[in-house]
Design a protein around this nucleic acid. Structure first.
Lengths: 238, 238
DNA sequence: CAGTGGTCTAGACCACTGA
DNA sequence: CAGTGGTCTAGACCACTGA
């Protein structure tokens, strides 16, 4: 039981009153001045605690009016998007990747490539299959902007799939995932060694670094082989 | 061009050097003392900027050693989990719900119910179908703990599906989603008016309020009818 | 106009930990 | 042991905005 810093104790104190329902949405929180005297500390310390609760979406703070318990919003959950090799290693399975196809395209010739990745220029296009213990689990199509990541042109992905290479080398600032379901088509069914129409979890992700698009990836996971976990909760401060 | 607070300017200044690649993973950031004199400000101001970058995962800070540009990590994304009626209204579609089945079970008799919801006692069990413009989009099985939500026993869900009723009445503090794909079975295929084996997006969610389990829901969305969006980015501070 | 939160200062003490 | 970051203080000025 290591003693928490004071601003953390103030934060969790108020947080637990909100989560327990003792403080309801719309209720007023005491002003910083009042909390100063209640906790016997400087205003900066109270401010740090309330600012954190504000950033976490639990409080609405307005000048002159004060701090109020926020109404619950359209809830956003934390979705863990692990690297597949890392995830399989955690499960004790052996990861493998087979590159099926690797070429360089140009969005000026192939319009649909530009639509997928969302930018113009030369693009590295790869297709491959992820394996767990030599059994196919996912088919992957990936586009990488060579304007943003010129170094990737010299990679052969013999030891490491493109996604893991990117994760290790290229910092990114924004990403968007689109998650759905689909049936395997002729190409993906053959690559995954399943029959056409087999249900698959589809994850499409676009990644940017400071407004410059880096990569688009579409992964198809055979139903049952892989699941995404999303959590919401006060315990999520790893 | 409203002038940003100083700590924000320091933050974005360093952030942009990291994102541009000028500062690479592992590079050392000047100490707070040095940044104080460089920006001509107090240490608290520099600290606020660096702490924010640390919280955002862009810096690793260690005592005595200093602050270093972090290696990009496996990142957790924000997953929007909207209420289905709300989401369809946003798209301009008419929402409908048909209750297929409603009964009360007890986990002491039906063990598999207790395993799903993760608690003991009397449980309201419903099955239903969500419609968009009178077309089925999702099949739903829901369990609600009557110990946690006794009021729900008197609801008939004629005007509102159980999920929306819960969202409006019961605050929750923790939730876990499990997202996968599956093929429709005989029961769900008939309810959704699709053929058996049709790919579906499966979303299972358990919800708790301060360690007390509230509800378990499993929804099957017909492939293509619904997608989940998850985002990550510095712009996500709505 | 008066109370609130946002920001900032110029100090301070401390725990930690790598040189 | 010396430099670093974590925390905290006791002030201050200010912009904002609802009573």
């Amino acid at each position: 039981m290591t003693s928490l810093p004071l601003h953390e104790r103030i934060r969790t104190d108020i947080e637990s009153r909100i989560l327990s329902g003792e403080l309801k949405p719309g209720d007023k929180i005491p002003s910083e001045k009042e909390l100063m005297s209640r906790y016997g500390c400087a205003r900066m310390t109270v401010n740090k605690a309330l600012s954190a609760l504000n950033a976490a979406g639990l409080l609405d703070r307005r000048k002159r009016a004060g701090s109020y318990v926020a109404r619950p919003r359209t809830v956003a959950m934390m979705l863990d998007v692990p690297d597949l090799p890392t995830e399989l290693a955690r499960r004790g399975q052996i990861y493998g990747f087979r590159l099926l196809d690797r070429r360089i395209s140009d969005t000026r010739r192939w319009r649909e490539i530009g639509k997928k990745i969302g930018c113009e220029g030369r693009v590295l296009v790869t297709h491959g299959v992820h394996f767990a213990d030599d059994v196919p689990v996912a088919y992957e199509e990936r586009l990488v902007s060579l304007a943003a990541v010129p170094e990737i042109e010299s990679q052969d992905f013999a030891n490491e799939p493109p996604g893991s290479w990117l994760l290790r080398h290229i910092p990114w600032t924004e990403a968007e995932n689109c998650i759905g379901a689909t049936g395997a088509n002729a190409v993906t069914a053959r690559a995954l060694k399943v029959s056409i129409g087999t249900p698959c979890l589809s994850v499409e992700r676009r990644t940017w670094r400071a407004a410059e698009c880096i990569t688009f990836v579409r992964q198809l996971y055979i139903a049952g082989s892989y699941e995404l976990i999303a959590r919401f909760g006060s315990t999520g401060r790893g």
